[in-house]
Amino acid sequence: MGDQENLQLIQQESFLNYCFKRNDQDVKDWEEWLAQNPDRRQEVDQLRQMLLLMGDGSRTRTISADFADLQNRINHSARGLKVIRSSAWLKWSIAASILVLFSVGILFYIAQNAKTANPKLADVAPGGNKATLILANGKKIDLSGAGNGAIANETGIKVIKTAEGKIIYDLSNTTAAANGQYNTIETPMGGQYQVNLADGTKVWLNAASSLRYPTHFSGNERKVELTGEGYFEVAHQKNMPFKVASAGQTVEVLGTHFNIMAYHNEPVVKTTLLQGSVRISIGKQHTLLKPGQQAARIGSKISVSDDVDMEDVVAWKNGYFKFNESLEGIMTKISRWYGVEVVYETKTDPNLTYSGKISRGRNISAILKIIEFNGDVHFRIDGHKVYVTK
């Protein structure tokens, strides 16, 4: 079947009706086919999400890495696909249909049709590099408004802000008085920041988080205090272990990469090891982690899992959301990053799981449209409040 005939089928809106839920029979037919071909559900779901994102009317939207990956995988598998014959109109393969979208310039047609299917939401811009640095003398520096370059000098320790959204500690002129001085960096809701500590350790802070740390490490350990979420790449120092105190636990390492999620409004504190080794201590209880493991702590009880999606854990650090959880879990993350309050006007199903991946650089409406499309829920935005409705 040629591209021209495929294009005619797309213009009949059978697949688009399924994607945008505009025709019950089309939706039923596609769902029946997907039930018979579960191996194709992922491609279809990803395509639906991409079509939905184009539904905001943008004619110049950049195709994401996900879309490129989807196209690549389908290009490699298209030859092995069979023609679908489960109904009168369902005579075309998913691969052919998707390839037509790229090859015949149909993206504008889809975007125009999607406008009517998805009324435009009010919007909130994404978070960014925002933080406050609190010096040892109590002085507060708004890093969002501070210029690049040296922003402080404490007992010979120079604090430098870079254009990339991070601060670096220069110890070249350190004096003995630097010992025992602490700085704190705090990110607000809708903020993130990177700090390079005096020992070379790199820390990325997620939204609504803080890190308290010495401006110069001395003695027999390097100890910092974390609230919220942080990703650590610890500089190796054999005789000076690095310790992170967070939410009643202490994580001890020599040199490694790990993530700690310890928000006060989350029921579980999660420590995930990507590289190296760590020891988690709660009082006299100690737990060792190996790379690829995650420790989940509730109260004084720790459980260790080997079944961990590492991409999911560090998605926030790498600039995107990766969801595989309940609506409330997703909305908690959205609330932090976009600095919004979530108001539930209806009960949500805790057993319903939403999955997806999208850049944290998009406005909030792009995320909410995807969720609306994939579940029996709607949203209303009023200022910095998001209302969840049926």
Rank of each mutant, 00 (worst) to 15 (best):
G248P: 11
I280Q: 03
N148A: 14
A122Y: 06
A176V: 10
H286T: 14
L143C: 08
A114E: 07
G375W: 12
V314S: 12
V278F: 01
A88S: 03
M189H: 04
V27S: 01
L205E: 03
E221D: 01
D24L: 11
H384G: 03
W30F: 02
K28N: 04
A117K: 01
K115G: 05
L34M: 06
V313M: 08
F102M: 06
R212L: 13
R362I: 12
S359C: 08
R48E: 00
G383P: 01
I381L: 09
K166T: 14
S281P: 02
L51N: 03
I381S: 03
T175D: 04
P38I: 01
I364W: 02
L211V: 12
D170C: 09
A366G: 09
Y263S: 04
D66L: 05
A245C: 10
T287M: 14
F321A: 07
N37V: 05
A95M: 11
Q181G: 01
G283F: 00
Y354M: 06
S64A: 15
A207R: 07
Q275V: 05
N324Q: 12
T348R: 14
T332W: 00
W92S: 15
L101H: 11
S300L: 08
I330S: 13
L81I: 09
A163V: 14
M189E: 00
L99H: 09
R61G: 11
Q36C: 00
W204N: 01
K390A: 13
L7Q: 14
A163E: 15
G375N: 13
Y354S: 10
N220S: 07
D26R: 10
T353D: 00
R73G: 06
S77R: 04
I160T: 08
T184E: 10
S210V: 09
E225Y: 10
K91L: 11
N113K: 15
Q192F: 02
L133G: 04
S103I: 03
S144V: 05
A131T: 01
K223M: 02
N137H: 09
A163N: 15
A315R: 07
K115Y: 00
S303K: 15
K333Y: 08
V343I: 12
V340K: 07
E229Q: 15
V104K: 11
S218Q: 02
L16C: 00
G149S: 10
T348A: 14
I141C: 09
I134K: 11
T227K: 14
Y344N: 06
V27T: 04
L197N: 02
L99E: 10
F20K: 04
G292Y: 04
S93T: 13
N17E: 06
V386F: 13
T346E: 13
G356M: 04
Y263M: 03
R297Y: 12
V313C: 10
L7D: 10
E341Q: 14
S277T: 05
Q194Y: 05
Q112I: 13
L90H: 14
D56P: 03
V269K: 11
D312Y: 09
